[in-house]
């Protein structure tokens, strides 16, 4: 085996472990926001590691896998951000042991300002 193939395989294995931990996280965490924390972070790094691992294993594919990774890196946080905002606005409560919720405190002010801007 060539040296870059070994690096690729190691990255694929690490990525698979992170994908598994991310999925375990969305089962174990108590509320939707904490699930998002585990789901987004661990699966993003896991997917990036697997995809770049395949790219390193096949050096001819490295640019294309680079584009896929860049796309995942840009869009995954955006979609979880949109989901978190939607969940909060749909009235999904935080985990009961949560410490603070500044967003709920400021929400009415934000809505009022947005309505003023929209006329």
């Amino acid at each position: 085996m060539l040296w870059y193939e070994i690096i690729g395989i190691v990255m694929i294995i690490i990525g698979a472990i992170f994908l598994f931990l991310g999925a375990l996280g969305i089962i174990r965490m108590p509320d939707v926001y904490n699930r998002m924390q585990a789901g987004t972070k661990a699966t993003t790094l896991g997917a990036l590691s697997v995809i770049m691992g395949v790219g390193i294993y096949h050096p001819a594919w490295i640019f294309k896998t680079g584009i896929i990774s860049l796309f995942i890196l840009l869009t995954n946080p955006v979609s979880s951000n949109a989901l978190a905002r939607a969940a909060h606005n749909a009235g999904i409560p935080l985990y009961e042991k949560s410490v603070v919720d500044k967003y709920a405190e400021d929400k009415e002010k934000i809505r009022a300002e947005e309505e003023k801007q929209n006329g």
């Binding site: 965490m29 108590p30 985990y95 042991k97 949560s98 410490v99 603070v100 919720d101």
Partner: peptide, 10 residues
């Protein structure tokens, strides 16, 4: 034990 202590800050 799931050591979390969550909240929303600004």
């Amino acid at each position: 034990k799931l050591p979390i202590n969550p909240g929303i800050v600004k």
